[in-house]
Design a binder for these strands. Structure first.
Lengths: 196, 196
DNA sequence: TTAACAACCGTCCATTCGGTCAGTAATCAG
DNA sequence: CTGATTACTGACCGAATGGACGGTTGTTAA
């Protein structure tokens, strides 16, 4: 029962199309990918794409929303936690890395949005909300004495998530490799430094 | 003698034009910026741009080359150093941050290149050379016992420069703020961690 | 067998794209 | 004034872009 037995003519549905689209967008950039490029990659005509999705931008919206929903789910989980701020922070970082690994193509697209259109600006706004959440957590952890006080918490937060987000530049999922190991590595370096 | 007294009709020269172009490319993305967008921002016609530069791609080439030259200059300086690998590494990181701050728009553009054209692929190739240099340095520092051995040096190197490169996402130069303070912060967090 | 359903094709369109070219305008040295 | 030097304009081009639209093909449930 792996197949739910879809009705109608077989082919792409929105989900399978989105997978291909996001991958291509990440390879060539959203603006650098034309709908014809995409249609060629899919093996169908350009007009067939518009049966599944009303516009190119909608593909972008679906992708970035998926990434953002994943990140905010982790954030919500974190906030319902009991304990010190630094523990919450570590939980948030671990969760973020897991979302990033799990939804790699979508998060990748999200982190490259520039703000040229309404859709992109909305995504940037939600990203800023998330960043503020991280910064607040770092600030709190600092007042609790668990984060070094010699660096501006806002800077610390940005460096921390700069490191986390940079995973999209090189991490590629391999069969059997769990994201938890990667999360471990990130937390070790970020919290305790790379020195022996 | 601030003005070298240029001959001919006043207006943009290649350098001043490049400044505006790179800034706009960073705001909207290279592919997302048309030559007409650029001409509007410059206040001249599109064809006037082609008096200064033979193609759009040449603007990109000039920019990324400037960034890469800056980074490789620091790398060369680092290699001529005496001392332990971890000291070289810290010097390289500091130098990279300074180049990044100094040539922010150019480095920003470089770090967003996707590899769609020959120019972009050439830039990516030089970036890979630089990354390999960093990785080798981390490896050596690990065998010398100065970098934690519980994480793959390649991963450590990438997380380290992920943090460094993430500066382009939020750092904006302010009058009177030296890049050295920022380099300090980066080195503290990266080498010793954010924990108190 | 048939009707509903879902995916797809070919053609067309207005606009925008990067780029060309022949001529013009402003500055400075002599 | 003249001529060299440099910056710029306006009209234009072929190709590519995102998207519209009416019709077609293949699959499943009844």
């Amino acid at each position: 029962m792996t197949t739910p037995a879809r009705r109608g003519r077989p082919g792409y549905d929105l989900e399978s199309l989105l997978q291909v689209a996001v991958k291509l967008f990440n390879e060539r950039g959203y603006d650098g990918t034309s709908m014809e490029d995409l249609s060629r990659k899919l093996g169908i005509t350009k007009s067939a794409i518009y049966h599944h999705v009303p516009s190119k931008e909608e593909l972008l919206r679906l992708s970035v929303d998926r990434a953002l929903n994943g990140l905010f789910a982790v954030a919500a989980e974190t906030e319902s936690f009991e304990g010190k701020a630094i523990e919450k922070l570590e939980h948030l970082v671990r969760g973020s890395v897991l979302v990033l690994v799990d939804q790699l193509p979508f998060v990748t697209l999200l982190l490259r949005v520039r703000g040229n259109t309404k859709v992109e600006r909305a995504a940037l706004a939600r990203r800023r909300d998330f960043d503020r959440l991280v910064t607040d957590l770092v600030k709190q952890a600092e007042t609790e004495g668990d984060v070094r006080p010699d660096i501006d918490p806002a800077v610390t937060a940005r460096l921390l998530y700069g490191m986390v987000n940079s995973l999209i530049e090189w991490y590629r999922p391999r069969r059997g490799s769990a994201g938890t190991e990667l999360a471990d590595a990130v937390c070790k370096i970020a919290f305790d430094g790379l020195r022996a």
